[in-house]
Amino acid sequence: MDTSTCLLSIPPEIITTIASYLPLTSVLQLAATNRCLRELIFDASALWKELCLVRECRIYDFSDEHVGSLIRNFSLNACNAVRQVDLSNAGPNITNQTLELILTHFPNIHTLRLNRCVNLTPSSIVELLVSLTEPSRAPRLHLPHLTHLYLQDDRRDAAHIALGNKVTLATIRMRLAQLAGRPTSPSEGDAFEICDLELCDCHTRTYASCANPSVMGATPSTAGDAYGNIVGLSIACACWAIRAYSVSAAIARQNSVARCAGV
């Protein structure tokens, strides 16, 4: 063995093993040292099955350009390996451009997390999905493994609930099902729940909000803040305000009973 061993003299699979123990930021630094390493790393399918950008990089101001410049380094092999992409909390600079890039580059993706990407609204997603599923589009986009699109935001105040309507929700579900090659209406098979958007109680508005917000669940102790106030929920929809009131009353009753019992 040559005693002046270089990193590049290690077999590619060992370099991939080393990279598999690194956080994403360090993988990118390693890739930036040398063209051979860069090509090797961006071709290593084992490294790119899960792409959790914000969590792993601890960066909160991603933009479409950042995501694009990263994805464009991927080889076909690496693109095919991607199963999950998590861009939650990536900030306001993530738009439809990133969503389109992800959907068109990763044919085997099954889960896409875009929670708290405030500029990805239900209506803008509809716009993109409609264009991606145009019959005239060539080649036709097919994502047979796509099963989950997460858009929920656990901050349930007026500024963070993405509003839509029943048609928006139906369109998103139908177009996603179309991309995945699944039945697009309940009559053709089981209802296809691919997206976590939900309808409010009175079925008039759609929300990219938490599936079990306190006002919709039955856990009164978590429904309000420390002072028993309900935070901003009544603004989203009148039916939620009624629920909020009911839960608030339940908390008050519970506190009253606790006080009487001397707890």
Partner: peptide, 25 residues
């Protein structure tokens, strides 16, 4: 072995961007 990991091997137009130490790309 810096001789074998020459900087000039890196594309000058590397679009990937480097992740800065401050946490910003």
């Amino acid at each position: 072995n810096p001789d074998d990991l020459a900087e000039e091997d890196v594309d000058s137009d590397n679009e990937m961007g480097e992740v800065g130490e401050e946490g910003a790309i």
